[in-house]
Structures are given as structure tokens and as C-alpha cells.
Amino acid sequence: MNLSESKDFIVNSGSLKDVRLFSRDVFEKLNLDKNLKEELVLAIAEAAQNIVKHAYKGIEDTDDKMQIKISLNDNKLEIGFYDKGKPVVEENIQHRQLDDIKPGGLGTFFINQIMDDVVFKKDQKKWVNHLVLTKNLSNN
């Protein structure tokens, strides 16, 4: 089954619930295993949270939207995140070392644990940041 769905969300923490709802709805159509579905929802929600937390750091009220696009082609799941926040500096992205027990830094670690690939693309004129998460569902 091939599929492509996208939705825009206002960039704020209140949208994260809607991001999860959208993701669950899409994955429901794909009839994914419940565990895998919840892992993917977590990865998507963490990436969306990073946009709110980091790309829009210091910006409390904005009407800006982020777009999330979930596509499945030949069992390859691709999830795109588009935003117009501060440009991401990839070198500054570090997930927490697991033996360093402190709050924070876990979101990126979860995304890397769950997905096969995490890539920032510089192919957008309309948007500032374009993150692509991929996972080959043939392996699951």
C-alpha cells in the first residue's frame, strides 16, 4: 500500500496532541503493529516537539505553522517535517549520553533509536528546515 498524507499544525506545545492524533490516524490506515505504531508516533511527536522547543526557542506566541508529511512507498516510510523557525545547526544536535542521567536531551535519542535514518535536507525555498525521518517497514 502506498500513501501520502500531510497536515499543518500551529507551532506550539498545544499542537503536539493533534500531531499524535494525525499520526495515529495515518498509521491506522496502514494497519501497523500496535507497538511499532506507538514507537513511530513517539518519534514524530519528539521531532515536532524539537521544532517547538528549539527552532522556535524564545518565541512564545506564533501563528507560524509546521507541516508534517507521512508517506509510504514500497514499504519505505518517510516522514517529513517542515518549519520556518531558526535554521537548525546540525553540529549542535546532540542526544544525551545515557549514562549522564539528567532531564532533557532524550527526544533526539528516541528518534534515532526508532528510525533508520534522520536527515536534514536543504532542498526547500518555502521552508527553513526540512527534516526527514525514514524507516524501512520490510524489516518489521
Binding site: 503536539l16 499524535r20 506507538e38 508516533v41 513517539l42 511527536a45 519528539e46 516537539q49 542521567i101 539528567k102 532531564p103 532533557g104 532524550l106 527526544g107 535519542f109 528516541f110
Partner: peptide
């Protein structure tokens, strides 16, 4: 039913 890294941070902070 659901907890993300922010929720986990609350657990760590509370524990510490």
C-alpha cells in the same frame, strides 16, 4: 497512556 521525553524528564527531575 502516553509519555514522551518531556514526561521522562519530569520523572528524572523528581527522582533527583
Amino acid at each position: 497512556q502516553y509519555m514522551d521525553s518531556s514526561g521522562i524528564s519530569v520523572l528524572i527531575e523528581s527522582h533527583q
